[in-house]
Design a protein around this nucleic acid. Structure first.
Ligand SMILES: [Mn+2]
Ligand SMILES: [Mn+2]
Ligand SMILES: [Zn+2]
Ligand SMILES: [Zn+2]
Lengths: 137, 137
DNA sequence: TTAAACTTTGCAACAGTGTTGCACAAACTT
DNA sequence: AAGTTTGTGCAACACTGTTGCAAAGTTTAA
């Protein structure tokens, strides 16, 4: 994705496309996997943790990325589909590879509806499958 | 559960039943919900974080408790069934109530098998449903 | 029963993650 | 151009998880 496309997308989602935000979003979208704050921090040595942090937060608030907690201790962020509103229908399984540490969206696997016992209401869900990915097998 | 029963259970699982370990396990089992290191630390002011930490680790290694990462930032621990080996067949959904912060096992809801794309192997999974529990509704 | 060997606990320290206040810089308004 | 709003960098902090080490406690074996 080009800088220009990214800037357009940010604007579309009501996030002012600053240089930093463009950079962060581009890295995320081009990586093809979920990245943590620390992952991003490493990729561009000279940008401040808090700046990246705040960029991620505004992406999250505007449904551009969703958090994935794969159990490694740091929350990762994956880019949302264009039409995502991060509601129950956009939820999907995530896969965490224990060999390469890569975490990715499995949009082809929506999170199955569960019949909860009486009295429970369903708001959100996280479904993380841990195993080994094709690259590492 | 009485101290005596707990000591027996620890012994059965090859964990030497020291006073601290008995205390930690008892608290966990009697709470009826998953507790984090910090939760436990608060319940008995004068026991060291690292002692509780190590108790939890040995419980975990011996299939007496399983970790639940409900996304609140601290891993919680829930007691296993007696015959649990923490393998794929023991996995179940966990429910996190956003009102009371309580996290509990839903043993009645086993984690559904998912047909992964070719090349992926399935090792473990975490499925956390977030919502409001009957008490809080 | 005592000494040696092993295990558990407490203490202190540390790295990693997430988060915020504040001041300066940059961008936008009038 | 001056004033206002927004973004960034820096520093600090709280919390989680983890470990080395020494003291205390327990087990074993002479
Ligand atoms: Mn995803
Ligand atoms: Mn459970
Ligand atoms: Zn892999
Ligand atoms: Zn509740």
């Amino acid at each position: 994705m080009t800088n220009n496309e990214i800037e357009k997308k940010l604007a579309l989602k009501n996030v002012k496309p600053t240089a930093m935000r463009t950079l962060v979003y581009k890295t995320l979208v081009n990586s093809g996997k979920a990245l943590s704050l620390a992952d991003l921090e490493m990729q561009f040595e000279k940008v401040e943790r808090s700046t990246i942090y705040r960029a991620l937060k505004s992406f999250e608030e505007n449904f551009m990325v969703h958090p994935v907690d794969d159990g490694t201790g740091a929350v990762k962020y994956a880019v949302c589909d264009d039409d995502c509103t991060c509601n129950i229908h956009d939820l999907h399984v995530h896969f965490y590879c224990t060999r390469c540490g890569r975490t990715r969206c499995m949009k082809e696997l929506p999170i199955p509806e569960m019949k909860l016992p009486a009295g429970y209401t369903y708001d959100k869900a996280q479904f993380i499958i841990q195993g080994v990915c094709p690259r590492c097998d």
